[in-house]
Write a protein that binds this DNA or RNA. Structure first.
Lengths: 204, 204
DNA sequence: CCACTAACGGTCCCGCAGTTCCGTTAAGCT
DNA sequence: AGCTTAACGGAACTGCGGGACCGTTAGTGG
């Protein structure tokens, strides 16, 4: 799988290299949120980051590759989940977190752009999948706790439940429905909790 | 709102103009499904359609605009919904229809590309929203029938229920999860039905 | 502290997506 | 049927995104 010979940034990862990566990824995030994927110019990213455009082309090469690396960076920064003691409380906390992120002007645009990039490039799609796997795995324990408390059937698929909370929020974001408010978040959490209690997410 | 002076194709919509539109939209669909939005070349579309590339640039100008028109065309071709007599039956029929469409290699890629295009351009986003509004409105009656039968609370938001069926399927498609199978479709329908019965979609 | 070289960055260059020009075809109207 | 002109289509052009070259800067190991 790792047959590719070391690219730039792999042999001397310290100091300048790391600093350049950080500042370029940050600039890429800003540029994506402002202009969207279609108008993403790597030279513009380089300029925002006060870095030569050659550097950006050498290390990342394509917009998709840059977005993929951005996702790796985002996955590394995990925000700890809150525990409320009940399934519905935990799911609402999760839904509100997602809703707050997606309805934020900058972050929402960024996620849209990232998802668009993933549809164009397989490596980016892989990175996106890993990003969500990470996030879902962080929240899955609250479902297991609910199972232990007897709130949910024993064979409930925890990952599927967490995904079910996010799904309607992302669907709204992407199909351009009404703006995402806390009502939508709470509804997503409540619908998922009701479905889970009814056994809709037991493994078969 | 319509301050724009008539563009090409609006004054003589018959005969050749209509034929060109049909063949170009079809070619655009093929190209999108094969190469994705990022590698969509209008000259290539023109070539596939046996049409001068000048024509494509004059009438549509940008890839986003072409996709928007493609959506208008797709919204016009409605497939009739099936009626089974029960809420869960109707929702499963809807879920299976969506699942079949999205898991089809060509159609799935096409929808991905279209959603990506909508994230890049506001006019395309509007067209996408109208497309889904049309589709949702076609299926909403089955929820009203369920309310009349006493299966669901009176104030249940029909559109929200229909969207809830599609959401997890699209979420999987876009975040690159496991392939969409009939199990996923049935689960989406059952989860939505359970949540709806529990009153998660009553208007507030 | 010094040598070595990975990685950066300025400059020039090239291919092609997108545009312009103008002659040709056929839709719409009387 | 004939006239007008909307719309098409080939061909030549151009601006810019992306790449190549090479000198400069600064990590890394001794």
């Amino acid at each position: 799988m790792d047959a590719e010979q070391a690219g730039p940034g792999t042999i001397r990862p310290g100091g300048r290299t790391a600093r350049v990566r950080a500042v370029v990824l940050q600039a890429a995030g800003h540029a994506l949120a402002e202009n969207g994927l279609a108008h993403l110019d790597l030279a513009d990213v380089a300029h925002r980051a006060n870095v030569g455009k050659t550097t950006v082309y050498r290390r990342w090469g394509t917009a998709a590759s840059l977005v993929a690396d951005l996702l790796v960076d985002m996955a590394e920064q995990s925000s700890p989940r809150t525990e409320t003691g009940t399934l519905i409380g935990d799911l609402k906390a999760n839904a509100r977190l997602v809703q707050r992120t997606l309805s934020d002007r900058r972050q929402g645009a960024l996620f849209k752009a990232i998802i668009a990039a993933a549809t164009c490039d397989d490596r980016t799609a892989g990175a996106l999948r890993r990003f969500y796997d990470t996030r879902v795995a962080e929240w899955a324990p609250c479902v297991h706790q609910a199972i232990d408390r007897g709130e949910l059937p024993a064979l409930t698929d925890a990952h599927e439940v967490i995904r079910a909370v996010s799904a309607p929020l992302y669907y709204r974001l992407l199909t351009g429905g009404d703006p995402l408010d806390t009502t939508a978040a709470d509804r997503a959490a409540e619908a998922t909790a009701a479905a889970a209690r009814a056994g809709a997410y037991v493994r078969r």
